[in-house]
């Protein structure tokens, strides 16, 4: 049996918003350690991995591993029925065909139960080694969202060049070119660790979709390494994270 309780529905809403633009369905793997979800996007270009440790939850009970196939759009609709500050409890039996979501308002003046049918989804669980990336950048997540949005006006490709001097974002298109340079410093709170410079190009459309996770974290972490997928990570409070992986485009940047 699984029972997981969060004191505020808002966090779950934000998580589902961060996922549902990329994947329509996903399998939530539940164990005593917490909840994990991993899925490629519908066109199999990017990968999203969600991890919520059991400590994230006010109450967490999972005495047997269970996999829940979820339609995220439906889940999003159910969550819309709750107030952000309601407590939410997710329950499922050992061989579930459905999950129950219970919302309780403060003081339990209003309680609501919803049952959501589960799906049978075949999905491989890939082991993603978090090997040593050669570049690690932290910056305000709202700044990263803004850069991705601004760059997408210029081209569908975005080139990220990372060196000890800073990180540069470049895009070039019919309108012209755009070039944004961030240096490490205190005002914008950007930190950059570089062992080896990296320059890679990515499809801007996916980066923009990743930034749907901006409400989850004040800061975003970018990991880059030659010939490795970009990793965009948003911490979720103290015990979780959502990670997006995107393979670089295979062409030499023409900048």
């Amino acid at each position: 049996m699984l029972e997981a309780r969060l004191s505020q529905t808002l966090l779950l809403k934000k998580i589902v918003d961060a996922l549902k633009e990329i994947i329509a369905q996903g399998t939530l793997d539940c164990s005593e350690n917490g909840l994990e979800l991993q899925s490629m996007d519908n066109s199999h270009v990017s990968l999203v991995a969600l991890s919520l440790a059991s400590d994230c939850f006010e109450k967490f009970h999972c005495d047997r591993n269970v996999s829940l196939g979820l339609d995220l759009k439906s889940l999003g609709k159910v969550l819309k029925c709750a107030n952000s500050d309601d407590a939410v409890t997710i329950k499922a039996v050992d061989r579930p065909e459905k999950i129950t979501l219970s919302f309780e308002s403060d003081g339990k003046e209003r309680t609501a139960d919803y049952e959501l049918k589960l799906l049978n989804l075949d999905q491989d669980h890939m082991e993603i080694p978090k090997k040593d990336y050669t570049c690690f950048i932290q910056l305000p997540s709202s700044e990263f969202a803004r850069i991705c949005r601004d760059m997408s006006m210029f081209d569908e490709s975005l080139t990220i060049a990372c060196s000890s001097k800073g990180i540069r974002f470049l895009a070039k298109g019919d309108l012209g070119t755009a070039n944004i340079q961030l240096s490490a410093g205190t005002a914008m709170d950007v930190s950059i660790e570089v062992q080896e410079p990296v320059t890679q190009s990515f499809a801007g459309r996916y980066l923009n979709t990743f930034t749907k996770a901006t409400p989850l974290a004040d800061r975003v972490k970018l990991y880059l390494s030659d010939e490795r997928p970009l990793l965009v990570e948003y911490p979720i409070e103290d015990y979780g994270h959502i990670r997006y992986y995107l393979a670089p485009k295979v062409n030499d940047p023409d900048f």
């Binding site: 601004d150 019919d174 012209g176 944004i180 340079q181 240096s183 410093g185 914008m188």
Partner: peptide, 14 residues
């Protein structure tokens, strides 16, 4: 340029 020049963006327009 932002204050302290921590963010510098340049755009080239045709």
């Amino acid at each position: 340029e932002s204050a302290n020049q921590e963010k510098v963006s340049d755009y080239e327009m045709k």
